[in-house]
């Protein structure tokens, strides 16, 4: 394992982490402020990717694709909130899980009905394609560097929004005491729609950005959704800072674990068994991390103490 390879893998882990953050940020806000478990968050990620692929395919511009992804996901989010989610705030979590699971099925089959069963094409924009040479001689894809940059920018923007603006104050107040801020005259249902659309837009952005280097297909959101839940449980529900740290932890653990565990096992096992066993253990690693965090901090790293 050369230092060069290690540095490249750390970059990969970071890139994975910031994209997870985009998903987890919306999820944690929605859960923190509205107390709602939204399983359909992965569908909004898929909506973003499909909107981007369709718009980029029609216009040839990746930037327009991103704009379409943001708009489509935010609109889908607002619509879902108004039509379905609004009726669920007073119900228990099981009802919410059931209803949002139904939304997953509706979104998946709806998308298949609109776009067909075959994956769509969405490519990295020409200006960002190909590798660049970083200091130290690492060859690294420019697009992934751009993803890290965009992710960090969005994280900083969200941090400012929560800490410094009036909306941010309302969101934080909403997390602490819903009834009280409603009593103080804040239009709580508008605030909820806004937060939901914001979370949806972030998920859509992640879907579009990641869709360019992965496969844009029905069901692409659900694996990411599971990881995003792990992130918010590690970070502490409702905390943007927690989501950020949690996402980076999960991204780095998953990437580096997948590399180092098989290498580690090779020291005392046959190579074939070592790769197989190492890969199996590596895929459990983030859940082990989650378990460990929960043992020492039952409400997550930055969760409010009960």
């Amino acid at each position: 394992m050369t230092p060069l390879l290690l540095a490249e893998q750390i970059l990969n882990g970071l890139q994975f982490g910031v994209m997870l953050f985009l998903m987890a940020a919306g999820l944690t806000l929605i859960f923190g402020v509205m107390g709602l478990i939204n399983l359909a968050h992965g569908s909004l990620y898929m909506v973003g990717a499909f909107a981007a692929a369709a718009a980029a395919g029609a216009t040839g511009s990746f930037a327009l694709g991103l704009a379409a992804a943001l708009a489509a996901a935010a609109m889908a989010g607002a619509l879902v909130e108004i039509l379905v989610i609004r009726r669920l705030y007073a119900r228990d979590h099981l009802d919410q899980v059931l209803a949002t699971f139904a939304l997953i099925l509706i979104f998946s089959e709806g998308t298949r009905w609109l776009f067909g069963s075959f994956p769509l094409f969405l490519d990295v924009p020409g200006a960002l394609s190909g590798p660049v040479t970083l200091p130290g001689g690492i060859q690294y894809p420019l697009y992934r560097l751009a993803l890290i940059g965009i992710g960090l920018l969005v994280a900083a923007g969200l941090g400012l929004l929560i800490a410094r603006t009036r909306i941010g104050i309302q969101i934080r107040a909403g997390e602490n005491d819903r009834e009280m801020i409603a009593a103080l005259g804040v239009d709580i249902s508008r605030l909820y729609t806004l937060i939901f659309a914001l979370g949806a837009a972030l998920a859509g952005l992640a879907g579009a950005l990641v869709g360019a280097i992965q496969s844009v297909q029905v069901g692409m959101g659900e694996p990411v959704l599971i990881l995003a839940f792990v992130v918010i449980v590690i970070g502490g529900i409702g905390s943007i800072k927690g989501a950020f740290i949690g996402a980076l932890l999960v991204g780095l653990t998953d990437t580096l674990g997948g590399i180092f565990l098989p290498e580690l096992f090779k020291l005392f096992m046959e190579p074939a068994t070592a790769t197989s066993a190492g890969a199996s253990l590596a895929s459990m690693l983030i859940y082990i991390l989650m378990g460990a965090v929960l043992i020492f901090r039952p409400t997550g790293l930055f969760g409010s103490r009960a």
Partner: peptide, 10 residues
Amino acid sequence: QTDYAAEIAQ
């Protein structure tokens, strides 16, 4: 799995 950056580096 959807991201192969780590494998490609290997």
